[in-house]
Design a protein around this nucleic acid. Structure first.
Length: 198
DNA sequence: TGCAAACCATAAC
DNA sequence: GTTATGGTTTGCA
């Protein structure tokens, strides 16, 4: 049985689908209906589910972590995510994305080079990330540092990155999948978007 | 800048 | 099997 919970913090809705202390999917949006339909799209079709109005203890910790991440806080969310039902390449790409530290961004192409495959394939996987914002697909941008796209709208992506600003000055390499992945300070990306979104 | 062509894993037929 | 679809990238005018 998959359990679905939904909670509002400061006018933003956060939802989670979980089963036996494993997270199947998470989502957030200003509309509760939207988060729920996002979640439902990611459910395995052959398992029954139920939507609950009172969060379980487990759900409470997840939902408040989602809110903390949304607020730009550095949460070490070591929840167990149900990745195995996803295609192997998708798993690999999501895991790589999860390693981008807060305050930094990486490009679709750079991730593609680290995990193998091409930039557009990576973009497609970001677009269908079942674990937003736990897996920080908002930290993935175009190679010219412009924002790229975002399921919840570009303004949301911009706001998230603003909240994650750490004042880092230079790029650095992190190790992903045994290969190097270059990440850049979020500021690189915000510079050119500020005029549009603020 | 702007456009065309290459790119590549998935999902949908 | 095959085709269509992008949250892309690169090169070239």
């Amino acid at each position: 049985m998959i359990e679905i919970y939904s909670q509002n913090f400061d006018d933003v809705w956060f939802s989670v689908a979980c089963s036996q202390n494993q997270i199947i999917s998470t989502s957030f949006s200003t509309s509760q209906q939207l988060t729920l339909s996002n979640i439902l799209e990611n459910l395995p079709f052959n398992i029954p589910f139920e939507v609950f109005h009172k969060p379980s203890a487990f759900a409470k910790t997840i939902l408040s972590s989602l809110k903390a991440i949304y607020d730009g806080k550095n949460v070490n969310a070591n929840f167990s995510l149900a990745l195995t039902r996803l295609p192997p390449y998708t798993q690999k790409t999501l895991k790589a994305t999860a390693q981008i530290p807060i305050g930094y961004i990486a490009s679709y192409g750079a991730i593609a080079k680290a995990v193998g495959g091409g930039p557009r394939a990576v973009g497609n996987i970001m677009a269908s990330n079942p674990f937003a914002p736990i897996i920080p697909c908002h930290r993935v941008v175009k190679s010219d540092f412009s924002l790229g796209g975002y399921g919840g709208g570009l303004k949301t992506k911009f706001d998230l990155l603003v909240k994650e600003k750490k004042g880092f000055l230079t790029s650095k390499d992190i190790e992903v999948n045994g290969r190097k992945l270059q990440v850049f300070p979020v500021e690189y990306s915000l510079r050119n978007s500020v005029a549009v979104f603020s």
